[in-house]
Design a protein around this nucleic acid. Structure first.
Lengths: 236, 236
DNA sequence: AAAATTTATTTTGGATCCAATATTAAGTCT
DNA sequence: AGACTTAATATTGGATCCAAAATAAATTTT
């Protein structure tokens, strides 16, 4: 085992793309980095998370690592067994379907609440998010598209003004982030998303709740059908 | 500030009632104690949580405290602001209503799933839980009744076999634990609960999903109506 | 050689120490 | 006195150190 001194290298030169100014606290920095590592597959599902290794890689001590891992545990992104440590959570087909089933219910609730109180500003932000989705879709920037897509949907969810519901939805979306990115890597899927978003915006503009719910369900079911295959083939 | 050595007194003589054998790790111990403190009102909503003080009281260092608080933050039991520390979460009327609204939706989903796969053993456990509710209700043991009541409902939720849904429900129940205990301190409320549980069991036995959902909603709405007043008077 | 046992190594959990920020108190100026 | 500035204190965040448990490797036993 190594035990050289910590260099806190993330304050100086760090090569990764986003993460412009480092977060307020180190744990937040660690949290975002571990999130990214899981998302990009650097930390693969089922892989144990060695605190020492991670600490060394990020140039921090183990303390902020542990606190960040506790948060991820709460979100179900990692699983924890006392004295055994943390493991990147695996998503069986069953779990995947549960996530989408819960999303269907909770998103309908959020959406209906939103439609009753949505402002023109919200609609504008929705359209802007959509524009960004299209833009990043065109240039094949999967990461940007995933982020923009999330912003698109959460613009609607946030407007509901239900913090716990929002938190649950975030957790559910996080759980399948990896797979969603895969979905966007197919051009046909990207085009489909763009198209469906248009229909969603239309329903929002018309303040037609039932139609909106219908379109969102359709939108969601489309991804589920495709992603199902990714999951099952991973299982083999 | 004091800084005497830690005595780890929770291994030896600790006066509190439950918590027979101490949990595997200190953070688990801390977690359960802080939970209890919030539940009993020792840590009142809005009150800042001083890590040093808490550490001294529990006879541990601040490290497990911090990890436990991170979990509670994830559950929304405490709020956190970097460099400012943790505060016991306050539940405004709005939040309270959100919790029950989400419970209504999620519990219906859990229940319907459960009814399709429930075993006779589950029903037996449900009846046992009910018996325990009645027993503790009779002897005016509010804490025991709250625990038994929770077991009663979660026997149904667990049988659904949906881990994320179960976790969400736990979070929602935790958020209003304090108020539910108050509800049970009224004898008439306790009797009402016992009665309604009988109806619920009946619907489960008959495998009548719609009837079960209806009864559960009624059951829930009853508490909401009463608890609403507790909340509003606290707000003043 | 395979199983069981012992020893060595790794890894986690917790305690203590130190630095940085936030909060409070004291002092200064108008 | 009230507002502003500066010093003192309290509190959090992070690093390091140590003990206990788990895992891996080596040894012994059958």
């Amino acid at each position: 085992m190594m035990d050289g001194k910590i260099r806190r290298n993330h304050r100086v030169g760090w090569t990764m793309d986003i993460e412009a100014r480092p977060p307020q606290t180190t744990q937040q920095y660690v949290l975002s980095q571990v999130r990214r590592a899981i998302l990009t597959g650097k930390l693969a599902p089922g892989a144990p998370i060695r605190q020492d290794t991670l600490a060394e890689q990020l140039g921090v001590s183990r303390v902020p690592i542990r606190e960040a891992l506790k948060i991820l545990e709460g979100e179900g992104q990692v699983t924890y067994r006392p004295r055994r440590g943390y493991v990147v959570a695996e998503l069986a087909l069953e779990d995947f379907l549960e996530v989408y089933r819960l999303r269907r219910i909770l998103e309908e609730e959020a959406i209906r609440q939103t439609l009753g109180r949505i402002t023109d500003e919200d609609v504008t932000r929705l359209e802007e998010a959509h524009a960004e989705v299209v833009r990043s879709s065109r240039i094949h920037d999967i990461t940007a598209m995933a982020a923009a897509n999330r912003l698109f949907h959460f613009t609607l969810f946030e407007a509901a003004g239900m913090p716990r519901l929002l938190r649950f939805l975030n957790i559910l979306w996080d759980a399948t982030d990896v797979y969603r990115s895969r979905y966007y890597s197919e051009e046909s899927n990207r085009d489909r998303v763009d198209q469906e978003h248009l229909g969603i915006i239309e329903a929002v503009r018309a303040r037609d709740a039932d139609e909106l719910v219908r379109r969102l369900n359709e939108h969601r079911d489309g991804t589920v059908a495709t992603l199902r295959e990714f999951i099952t083939e991973r299982q083999i």
